[in-house]
Computed example of a mutant assay.
Amino acid sequence: MLNRLVRHTHFKKAYKFVTAEVRLLASIAIVSGLVLGFFSLADEVGEGDLDVFDNFILMLFRDPDNVDLLVGPVWAHEMVRDITALGSFSLLGLIVLGVSAYLLLLRLKSEATLIVMSVAGGTILSTVLKWTYSRPRPDLSVMSTQFTSSFPSGHAMLSAVTFLTLGTLLAKIAPNRKIRIFFLGTAIFLTAVVGLSRIYLGVHFPSDVLAGWCVGAAWALLCNIAATVLQRRGEVTASVGSLLAKNAHGRHI
C-alpha cells in the first residue's frame, strides 16, 4: 500500500513537471511564430504586397459614394471612438498603475514590478519599431491629427502587451480555474476590439493592426515565460488563495 502511494506520488510529480515543460516549450514556439509573422508582414508591407488587401478592408467601413464617411449610425462612430481610447497610452498607464497598486496591497511586489517592467518595455519596443518602419498613415482617418507613424499599430500592440500581460499574470495568481478563464478571455477580447476599432476609424491599415497584435502578443508571452520561471523559483506567488491562507496561518500563530 505504501509503495503504491509512493509510486503514485512520484508519477503525479513527474506528470506535472512534464506538463509544465511542454507548456513552456509551446509558449516559446508560439513566440517564435508570432515574431516570424511580424517580420513577414513587415517585408510584405515594405514591398507593397498588402496594399490591395489593406485598402479593400478599409473600404468595407466607408461609404462608397463618399470615402470620408463611415458606415453605420453616428452613435456607433462615437462608441468605437470610446473603445479605441482603451488602447491609448494614458488610459493603459492608469490601468497598469491601478492593478500594480492592488498587487502591492496584496504584498505581491514581484508581480507588480513585472507588470510595470513588461508594459514599459513594450512601450519602448513599440516606439522603436514605429521609428524604424515610418509607414505613413491612411488618408481616411476621421480622428484628430496622429503624431506617430502607422506600422505597427501602437494601440493594437500596447493593448496586447498590457491586457495580455495582465491577463496571464492575474490568471497565474487566480484562486480557481473560472477566474483564470475570465482574466484570459477578457484580455483577449479587449485586445481584439481595440485593434478592430483602429481599422474601423481608418487610423491604421489592417496590416498595421495584425503586426501590432503579433509583436504585442509575443512580448506578453515572453513576460509570461519570465513569470513562470519566477514562479518556479518562488519569487512569484502561485495564487492569491495560497497567499491569503499563508497570512491567515501566520495570524493564528
Rank of each mutant, 00 (worst) to 15 (best):
S141F: 03
S153Y: 05
G122P: 03
C214F: 13
L108W: 06
G212K: 10
L169I: 03
L166Y: 09
A187V: 05
K172P: 01
A226E: 11
G185S: 06
L114R: 13
L106G: 10
V203T: 14
P136D: 11
I173M: 07
G122I: 10
P138G: 00
Y133L: 03
L104H: 09
S149K: 14
D208L: 10
V229Q: 12
P206V: 09
Y200H: 11
R198L: 02
D139C: 02
L91A: 08
R198K: 12
P175A: 05
L190I: 11
F205R: 07
P152C: 10
S150E: 07
R177E: 08
G212Y: 02
G154T: 11
A227D: 04
F147S: 12
K109M: 08
T145I: 13
G87A: 01
A220Y: 04
N224E: 15
M143I: 12
G154R: 13
W219R: 02
T165R: 10
T84V: 07
I225P: 06
L201I: 01
L210E: 11
L166P: 03
R135K: 05
V119P: 08
A218V: 00
S159P: 02
A211K: 09
V209L: 09
L86H: 02
G98W: 05
R135P: 04
S153D: 01
S159R: 04
T84M: 02
R177D: 06
L86E: 03
G87F: 00
T132M: 15
P138L: 01
A171L: 01
T165C: 06
G185K: 00
N176H: 12
S150V: 08
W131C: 05
S100P: 01
R232D: 10
L210K: 08
A226V: 07
S149H: 15
W213K: 11
S100G: 10
T165E: 08
S118T: 15
S126L: 06
S207L: 10
L169T: 04
S149N: 13
L201V: 04
S144D: 12
G167R: 00
F147C: 02
G185Q: 01
I225S: 15
I225C: 09
A218F: 03
V215E: 01
K178C: 01
T84C: 03
L108G: 03
